[in-house]
Amino acid sequence: MKVMNRVILVAALALYVSSYAAAQEMTKEEWQKQMTELTATRNDLKSKLTALQTEIDKLKKEDADKAAALKKCNDEVMALVGAEAAAERTFVAKLDEVDAKINELSRLSNQDLWARKGEVDDVQKALDEVKKNKMNALPKYFDRIKEQQNRIDALRKTLETAQLQMTYTVGTWAKDRDCLWNIAKKPKIYDNAFLWPKIWQGNKGQIKNPDVIKKGQVLTIPAKGDLTKEEKSAARSYWSKKTAAAVPSAPAKK
């Protein structure tokens, strides 16, 4: 009897399990419901996709229009300065040359820069030529040229400083032909003999008579520039004394 009961119990359990499993399968109604929902979703997505594609097509056209307008504008700007590809390449090459020269000069010590001060003038001339070109007006070059000018100006300031700090040790007349006139005439000093009063007045403490400078004297070389009122006045006074003495001679021979 016990065995019979157990068999019945197991069979009942099996029936429950199988009926539960059957209940988990999709019913026709559920299938229908999912089909309806998914169909609606698909239709919505399709509409959305179509709308998106329309929008993208419109945007593509807008992008192309903007690209064309940009090209037109750029062409107009280049036409304003009459820039053709070859001319522009030459212009850029000149700018590069100026850049290279400025870089080279900027790396020099003050003394070396002073010795090559003529090259600062040369590079300024080259830049002035570049500035005459209409392409100079193009923003992409304008700022670069402005920067180059600033760097040349900085080089000039360095030169002024170098000049302020410059000294000259007097040699002998026999060997170096050193007198104020000849010193002022030296390319490394003023490259202009008529500026000799500048050296005289800059060293008033040690030069009483501009005709007399001694070997080994260290002279301060004032910055190059036009003679000041005092320097002109000193020079006039010197020459009038010379004329009065009626002995023409060059100043400061040793």
Partner: peptide, 21 residues
């Protein structure tokens, strides 16, 4: 046990009558 079997049979009948896709 009888009640158990009856319940199980009813459940089977109920699921067996539902239509499926």
């Amino acid at each position: 046990a009888g009640l158990f079997v009856a319940g199980a049979l009813l459940a089977m009948m109920a699921t067996g009558c539902t239509s499926k896709p």
